[in-house]
Design a protein around this nucleic acid. Structure first.
Lengths: 70, 70
DNA sequence: TTGAAATGTAAAAAATATTATACATTTGAG
DNA sequence: CTCAAATGTATAATATTTTTTACATTTCAA
């Protein structure tokens, strides 16, 4: 799922390590999510959005096809 | 994490089973999330919001203390 | 250009979400 | 009230996320 984490993080001059520490996760987790290795949990999504001064809906963008009704 | 799933689901006259089928998960998953047994994945959150005609940020409300910086 | 800081990556273990199967309880229309 | 539908719950198995530890690569200021 695409996201704007790296963009917003750099705007605030944070390192991956800074986000990780602030949110209580490891740097690897931040790195993996930034690089779209897997989807993070809902709670971490809210924490990230909160810390980066935005909303979950703005921060993440799921692929259209995944939202379409089956 | 609190949510408005039951409220919005009933407004649309859906059963838990209907949501489950539409989203490709089991009824137990919908039930568990409605009743706050655990947090769903980010993708499922987006699917739920989409189907219920709202946003992730509106549908879910994490507890304040969990968002505060450590 | 060099060296340290920042980022990327790997693999196994731990934590958490979801499924599958099954049964119990509640709810509401007839 | 009664019966079926809807919802709640339990447990073990599976899938996915996150941690831990460790090392490789990139970036950028001196």
């Amino acid at each position: 799922m695409k996201n704007k984490i790296r963009k917003l993080r750099k705007e605030k001059n944070y390192r991956q390590e800074d986000l990780a520490t602030a949110l209580g996760v490891t740097r690897q987790t931040i790195n993996a999510i930034e690089n779209d290795k897997y989807d993070c949990t809902l709670l971490l999504a809210f924490k990230l959005a909160n810390l980066l001064g935005t909303t979950v809906d703005d921060l993440f963008e799921p692929e259209r096809k995944l939202l379409e009704n089956h």
